[in-house]
């Protein structure tokens, strides 16, 4: 069944320990940011920013009633559409680890078309390097996880918002916590719990957090011709 995350957004305080821990473990350089009138810096994910805490003020009658924090990252889909599309051009560009379920982008993603890969992702995660064309995203701290360690982001979380473990356990934890949280937040919901390995618990409608917080927000999935073929091929091919 592989590994999974449970991210309880009712406990996220946007301290951004996860965002920084991710950079530290992956030795990613800092971006040369300029405050754009928000705490959310950098403004978006990038080739060198795999994890980003998005912050949205929810306003009713001119007053903030919620400040929603969303540590955004790759969901490591059970059936990753990025891989389906990528495999059409290079089967070694995007790998999926059988044991953990990690969806891993390799250097060979330079052989793929970045817009296609980005477009195939329901959560708008992958980002390409402008110079090399290599595409990157969260790798579930694969090198830590296979050594029995927690992903860097999970380890850094001070409030107990982020959890990591066997996917089944994470799902159970998410369901249990959802039932509890509903007492305070009746509109609380889990994000695509059957399709992904990174299960978010949203305290309110996911679209208030971020446009691509859950897949269904885009409406019914529309397939490009390549994606349609990719789907076809996928059924005949074992996991890498």
């Amino acid at each position: 069944m592989g590994k999974g995350f449970f991210i309880d957004l009712t406990k996220c305080t946007a301290c951004r320990g996860c965002q920084v821990a991710c950079k530290q473990w992956h030795k990613l350089p800092a971006e040369d940011t300029y405050n754009w009138g928000s705490y959310q810096n950098p403004a978006d994910l990038s080739f060198i920013t795999y994890k980003l805490v998005r912050m949205e003020e929810y306003v009713e009658n001119g007053k903030v009633t919620d400040w929603l924090f969303f540590p955004d990252q790759c969901r490591h889909c059970i059936e990753p559409p990025c891989k389906m599309v990528g495999d059409m051009d290079d089967e070694q560009a995007i790998l999926q680890d059988f044991d953990t379920g990690t969806v891993m982008f390799t250097g060979r993603t330079r052989n793929l078309f970045p817009d296609e890969i980005k477009g195939s992702c329901p959560y708008d995660i992958p980002r390409a390097c402008e110079d090399t064309g290599v595409i990157s995203k969260c790798d579930m701290c694969f090198d830590r996880v296979i050594n029995g360690m927690l992903p860097a982001c999970v380890l850094s979380c001070p409030t107990g918002a982020m959890h990591f473990g066997d996917l089944g356990d994470m799902k159970a934890m998410a369901e249990e916590r959802l039932a509890e949280v509903k007492k305070i937040y009746p509109n609380a919901v889990l994000g695509d719990p059957r399709a992904v390995r990174v299960i978010y618990l949203f305290q309110t409608s996911p679209h208030r957090y971020h446009g691509a917080a859950v897949a269904s927000l885009h409406g019914p999935k529309r397939f490009t011709r390549k994606e349609a073929f990719a789907k076809l091929f996928k059924t005949r091919r074992p996991l890498a």
Binding site: R16, T33, N35, W36, N41
Partner: peptide
């Protein structure tokens, strides 16, 4: 650098009405 990236410059927080009064936009 990693911390500076997240909060790169000092900022002043103001309410939208004051922003209007002083013709200031976020950023």
């Amino acid at each position: 650098p990693w911390l500076l990236e997240t909060m790169p410059q000092n900022f002043a927080e103001i309410d939208p009405e004051l922003a209007k009064l002083r013709e200031i936009k976020s950023g």
